[in-house]
Design a protein around this nucleic acid. Structure first.
Length: 417
DNA sequence: TCTGGGGTCCTAGGACCC
DNA sequence: TCTGGGGTCCTAGGACCC
């Protein structure tokens, strides 16, 4: 088999860069990328975490995922901008459009990352390293933001390579370069080695990726189960998954969750939030012509304890009220009465909705409810999500459709390659 | 002083069936 | 009275990714 050529394209500080470019295009003189700055959520609504930061902010120790207040203490002059998902979607698809000009095999891996299978394309576009350089320059000139590109023979190594020095760089990490470029790095730099695994590895005296590669695989398996063997292979550069165009990867589930600006302490409020979440989940199901046979609710208490409760249904559903009623019951069964900070509703066990089997126990108004849902979907599609709102939300202080919509255009995200 | 939201996959334990 | 396995399904929780 011919060796593959895989590229991984990664936008540098994506959310922040995109906002910076947008601001410059609107006539701002300040480039957010050149000062300590970050995209951060709203602390007043308890969404205050750092989503992306500039390189100067990074140099002040600001980390993505950390609370905004913590970032501010590390970096008092930090300039904060709010997130803008709509802008990110536009920038993301503009990038993907360019990438698809160079190969029919482009897998969008997240909003700001993609794999491009360049195998066999050299004849048209030249050697990989040359093309990658041209590609990154073109993105910078046409779209205004920079990317890193990693090149290798599989997705794992390409991804590891794009994570080397930033921004606006092309790196290779072919098998012959693993020893010099990857093995000296600390274990947590390896894809799929997170905080918990890194801690376990360190307690075993395994400090670098090279240490993983030369460890005893039986010992790794004993300590880390199958995950131990996975990272053993990854540390040696072994990985062979295909570059899937996005639509070959069906969604396994869809869910919405939200941190509520206040603590929920009574059933009535909890019900409203569950209805709101159920509404968005069900709309997404219907939009993608799916139904689900498993419903789960998740709860995070104000002290950050969390739990989840799920149930498999006898018949698949995608009607808002069916999902809501199940979610409400699951919540009642799981809730211990403590103040609740965050709630989620998730649908899984997805299937096509073209042949829903009706159980004799089904609610007689099922067909009517679904027709109503579909009619409301059409109105909301044409006039916006807020054009039809359930009366119970009016003056409730609770958003009638919590959670993100439009995610059917969103890439399928996974922690696996 | 206050810690998001969207996913996938794996494991362990219990129920249940043969 | 006291004792099997093996297989599948379901659920809860935890790990990882961006």
């Amino acid at each position: 088999m011919q060796d593959r050529i895989i590229m991984h394209i990664d936008v540098n500080s994506a959310f922040l860069s995109w906002q910076a470019v947008y601001n410059l295009q609107r006539g701002h003189s300040l480039d957010l990328r050149e000062i300590p700055s970050a995209v951060g959520g709203n602390q007043a609504t308890r969404h205050g975490i750092i989503l992306a930061r500039s390189i100067p902010a990074k140099n002040h120790g600001v980390k993505t995922g950390e609370p905004v207040w913590e970032a501010k203490t590390k970096c008092p002059g930090l300039v904060l901008v709010p997130p803008d998902r709509h802008l990110y979607m536009k920038c993301s698809s503009a990038l993907m459009d360019i990438l698809r000009e160079y190969s029919p095999r482009v897998q969008q891996y997240s909003i700001d990352e993609a794999f491009l299978d360049y195998t066999g394309m050299e004849k048209r576009f030249g050697p990989p390293l040359v093309l990658a350089g041209r590609l990154k320059d073109r993105v910078r000139e046409e779209l205004g933001f920079t990317v890193n590109i990693g090149i290798s023979c599989n997705k794992l190594l390409a991804k590891m390579a794009s994570d080397f020095k930033k921004p606006d760089r092309v790196h290779t990490l072919f098998p012959g370069e693993i020893k010099d470029k990857m093995w000296p790095l600390p274990v947590e730099n390896l894809f799929m080695v997170g905080k918990r695994t890194a801690k376990k590895l360190r307690s075993m005296g395994i400090l670098t990726i090279g240490d993983i590669a030369s460890a005893d695989p039986d010992l790794l398996k004993y300590k880390l189960k199958s995950h131990g063997l996975l990272i053993y292979d990854y540390a040696r550069g072994i990985e062979n998954s295909a570059v899937f165009p996005g639509y070959y990867m069906p969604m396994k589930g869809m869910g919405n969750s939200s941190t509520i600006p206040f603590d929920v302490e009574n059933t009535r409020t909890a019900r409203l939030i569950l209805l709101s979440l159920s509404e968005t989940v069900a709309m997404r199901l219907r939009y993608s012509r799916s139904c689900c046979s498993v419903i789960a609710v998740s709860i995070k208490y104000s002290d950050f304890r969390h739990c989840s409760h799920q149930q498999k249904l006898l018949t698949p559903v995608n009607c808002t009220m069916d999902i809501y009623r199940t979610a409400a019951r699951l919540f009642d069964e799981a809730w211990d009465g403590s103040p609740v900070r965050h709630m989620g509703v998730r649908a899984s066990g997805l299937d096509r909705d073209n042949h829903i089997q009706c159980s004799v126990f089904d609610h007689p108004r099922y067909a009517g409810n679904l027709q109503l849902d579909k009619a409301i979907d059409r109105i909301r599609n044409a006039y916006g999500i807020k054009s039809v709102v359930r009366a119970c939300f009016i003056n409730s202080g609770i958003c009638a459709s919590l959670g993100g919509m439009g995610s059917e255009n969103w890439p399928v995200m996974s922690s696996t390659l």
